[in-house]
């Protein structure tokens, strides 16, 4: 019996965004990465194109992070050297790209100067040849002073820079506009703000509308993940049905969110009912990432090399054609 396969007819698709730049385009990357372009719901190859596989980044900090001790064996030798750290992430752990988090710029931590931040980014760019993303320390006043020096120092590299928020998107957007970088537009688990922020950024310069990455804020497994999941499903449905202001590739930091939670960190001694800590943490992170792949994420930031490995295996599987 031939079953009549049900395929959705969509009016539109997700826009493609290129990350990084090679020599020809004024950068120094060995290759670029294209994300987005989907004309179907996640991995339903039978009804449309999934032209670009989602990519997975690992995160490099400019200060020694206070992470779970289980990370010591992977990153302990490079915690003090962002360049070596980035290199290890790419060469040993297989990261598709690197996200530099300039946590040290935080005035309450190391208060690194804008020049220091730019130097860190340059160091990472020299150490690896993959595209690079750069995130500030999270304190808007300080971050607004570092975007321009970084954007200028890395002019031509087509960085991904963030984050722009509804109350504070102009500084990072202008820095990206002036130096041809891509901006991350972050909204607080709120699809209306997500859309409005994209509109505001596109209004600053129409050219930026194809250089936006949506960060809808990805909650961790067990901590509101279903809210983010549904928002991303709605945004992706909107994009496919022609809502251009939601038709940007999506980004989320599954590593950061997951490893903030008790379930990833608490030892088996303290919580024997939950089993061994490290594997639990890896799976807390990887399951979080898995859910976001199913709701349409294009760029994942991970932390544990084993979680990255498991999720890249899952992406390999999901990218196999399932046309009827």
């Amino acid at each position: 019996m031939a079953v009549e396969i049900l395929k959705e007819k969509y009016r539109s698709k997700v826009g493609e965004v290129v990350l990084g730049a090679t020599k020809e385009d004024g950068g120094t990357r060995s290759h670029t990465i294209t994300v987005g372009g989907e004309s179907a719901l996640p991995y339903l190859h039978f009804e449309g194109e999934i032209p670009n596989r989602p990519v997975v980044a690992l995160e490099v900090w400019d200060i020694v992070p206070e992470w779970n001790p289980c990370f010591e064996q992977y990153y302990g030798d490079v915690y003090n050297d962002p360049g070596a750290w980035a290199k290890k992430c790419v060469e040993e752990y297989g990261a598709d790209l690197i996200q530099v988090r300039l946590k040290g710029a935080d005035p309450d931590l190391k208060d690194h100067s804008p020049e220091d931040c730019a130097a860190t980014v340059k160091k990472v760019l020299e150490a690896v040849s993959v595209p690079v993303m750069v995130i500030g320390c999270g304190k808007a006043d300080k971050d607004n002073t570092i975007y321009n020096p970084i954007a200028e120092a890395a002019a031509g590299e087509n960085l991904v820079m963030g984050v722009g928020e509804l109350e504070n998107y102009k500084a990072v957007t202008s820095a990206c506009m002036a130096n041809n970088h891509v901006v991350i537009a972050q909204s607080p688990i709120d699809i209306n703000i997500c859309k409005q922020l994209n509109i505001l950024i596109a209004e600053m310069s129409p050219a930026m509308s194809t250089r936006i990455i949506i960060d809808p804020t990805v909650a961790a497994l067990g901590y509101g993940i279903e809210y983010s999941y549904s928002i991303m499903e709605r945004a992706r449905n909107g994009a496919l049905q022609g809502d251009k202001m939601l038709a940007m590739p999506m980004y989320g930091n599954a590593g950061f969110e997951s490893w903030r939670q008790k379930e990833a960190n608490i030892s088996a001694d303290e919580q024997p009912g939950w089993g061994e800590q490290e594997e639990r943490g890896i799976l807390w992170e990887a399951t979080t990432a898995m859910a976001y792949l199913q709701s349409g994420i294009d760029i994942l930031v991970m932390r544990h090399p084993e979680a990255l490995k498991a999720i890249k295996g899952n992406i390999d599987d999901l990218m196999k054609n399932n046309s009827y």
Partner: peptide
């Protein structure tokens, strides 16, 4: 194993 099932059941 517990550490394997807990994330799945939470999801």
């Amino acid at each position: 194993e517990k550490q394997q099932l807990l994330p799945l059941l939470s999801w």
